[in-house]
Amino acid sequence: MSAGVSRRFDGFALYAIAYLIFIYLPVLFLPLFSFNDSIYIAFPLKGFTLEWYGKMVNNPGLIDALWNSVQIASGCAVLSTILGTLAAKSVTRYRLPGRGPLIGFIMIPLVIPSIIIGIALLILMSLGGIELSLFTIGLGHMLFCVPFSMLVMISRMEGFDKSMEEAAQDLGENAWGTFWRVTFPLVVPGVVASLLLTFTISFDEFVLAFFLSGTDVTLPVFIWSQLRFPNRLPAVLALGACILMASFVLVTFAEWFRRRGVQLKTSSGV
């Protein structure tokens, strides 16, 4: 019995290890070569240096692009979380006619290839005579961020006893008061998770940002433009390592917050 279990375990363990190596080994090359004292990305490693990190910080184009990305991602995160929360509240709390198709239409951008959306939006902007800018990029990102936020918020809204909201009304709160005194405190974990998730999605996005950017570019677009110059590549590696770290921290924090919410819910269940 135990022999059988351990043999199975060996096979799966091998598979799991191979899988993890396939995912993470290439990614780990980024930080590894960002400390390597050579402009060529090749073994053997030459020596340890922080030069590329210095170059990264002293590159004004890069810092501008980073700042652009942070602005767009923050704006998208806040706006799409507000819209996502309101949409989630309406589809979970009211008997909406055509609720199913409505949710479907909002979710569709998640499954349409972004290059199609990129081209479509580009045509729309040029037809409308709208100049490409950070604003148009943000608009494009909202298409993805709203459905993600809505998914997070729907699961959160469905996760708590609806009679809580009725109790608040019963005790004298109108719809507004009920939302702020009961609904919002109960969905806060979802709101934080949604903010972090949508920020990351917008920050990482390349295709739409590439199609919709004017003179100002976002960080992923800037990085892509740097790849043509071999001597600038190590600085991009350094930046990549930094983003990797920041993304990792953000997503871990979002997930931790979401789980804390789930635990709160189960422990307070009746």
């Binding site: 009725e166 109790a167 004298g172 709160e173």
Partner: peptide
């Protein structure tokens, strides 16, 4: 009269104690 202005109060089956 909307629910929040009715002079009646309710004890819910699930009690609906606010967990926060």
């Amino acid at each position: 009269i909307p629910p929040h202005q009715r002079p009646v109060n309710m004890v819910f089956q699930s009690y609906a104690i606010f967990p926060h």
